[in-house]
């Protein structure tokens, strides 16, 4: 029982970086801009978050905002490359990853942020609510960002599906020529989508340091950006499915060390590969199920050139 509570209570923290990252990617890619730079945006957010806490000596929420802003700043480079200069989106995305790896390493080194422990953001204590047995620790003892993320998902689904702006954004990603003919500013929509995506990715990265690890080391994100990219494909660009996938990953990541800590003897490499086995299984299952429709944007990865014939 205690095991179950500990496990379930830890899931949101593990799922959150994947969930926010995947949401950011979906918003960006719905506008037709393929974003392979996720790992880079996570890294810059993670480093900026840690650096801000260390510099200001606290204020974790401000640090998370700085994380999102730092990532958005880097995304301006990406947006100029792929939207204005129409550079290949795959190559630009990878460039962002390498740029962020070098940049975070250099800045953290020069500022002396590496390997410095800090306090970070702690979980909320909602008094009597948090004390309810079973439900209290799981639902009412998370940190602020977890609740914020749930809100962000509802907001994103509403904006994307039920507002004119969301409809236009999807039109831009589906068929930029038609959207342009209908008077939508394709460049502006794509710019904003890339920026919002990067803000969310940066927040996810900041969460990794400010809330989870409470320390910065080189390459801290450990490939989580790539997992977010895989999640988006696996969720077929659908927001709720992406959240489901992120929670699934969170379940497994929170379970692995706990299974080991209670001394259950199962082969270690088998345990470490479970997230990937489960991903495979779900992908096979979704492709076999009757509802195979994908929400992949029609113009994903295609630069928009006004009045160009295709």
């Amino acid at each position: 029982m205690e095991f179950l509570v500990n496990w379930l209570a830890n899931i949101p923290g593990f799922a959150l970086p994947f969930a926010l990252g995947a949401l950011g990617l979906i918003i960006c890619e719905k506008s037709g801009v393929l974003n392979l730079g996720a790992e880079g945006f996570l890294l810059i957010g993670a480093m900026a978050g840690a650096g801000a806490v260390l510099t200001f000596g606290g204020y974790p929420l401000l640090a998370l905002a700085m994380a999102a802003l730092a990532s958005a700043l880097l995304s301006l480079v990406f947006a100029v490359l792929v939207i204005l200069l129409r550079v290949n989106q795959v190559i630009s995305g990878l460039t962002i990853v390498f740029l962020a790896q070098g940049l975070t390493s250099l800045i953290a080194l020069k500022q002396g942020w590496t390997n410095k422990a800090f306090t970070g953001l702690s979980s909320l204590d909602l008094g009597p609510l948090s004390d309810i047995p079973f439900i209290g620790p799981i639902v009412f003892s998370q940190d602020l960002i977890v609740y914020l993320t749930v809100g962000l998902f509802f907001l994103a689904v509403h904006l994307m599906g039920r507002t004119n702006a969301g409809l236009r954004l999807r039109a831009v990603g589906e068929n930029p020529d038609a959207a342009d003919a209908a008077g939508i500013n394709v460049t502006a929509y794509r710019f904003v989508a890339v920026l919002i995506g990067a803000l969310l990715l940066g927040l996810a990265g900041g969460y990794l340091t400010v809330v989870v690890s409470k320390i910065w080391v080189d390459g801290l994100t450990g490939g989580r950006g790539w997992i977010a990219i895989a999640l988006v494909i696996f969720a077929r660009w659908r927001i709720w499915r992406a959240l489901g996938g992120a929670v699934l990953f969170g379940c497994i990541e929170a379970l692995i060390p706990r299974v080991a800590a209670i001394g259950v003897q199962v082969p270690q490499y088998f345990v470490l590969m479970t997230p990937y086995v489960v991903t495979f299984a779900v992908m096979v299952w979704t492709s076999l199920s009757s509802n195979t429709a994908s929400d992949e944007p029609g113009a994903l990865g295609r630069p928009f050139v006004r009045e160009e014939r295709h």
Binding site: N10, G219, L220, G222, P257, R258, A260, A261
Partner: peptide, 22 residues
């Protein structure tokens, strides 16, 4: 607890917290 990584503070924290819970 084996984390499967040499340099991943996120997994190391999870492992250490899981041990402390026990």
């Amino acid at each position: 607890v084996f984390t499967g990584a040499w340099n991943d503070p996120v997994k190391e924290r999870a492992a250490a917290e899981a041990l402390a819970e026990q």
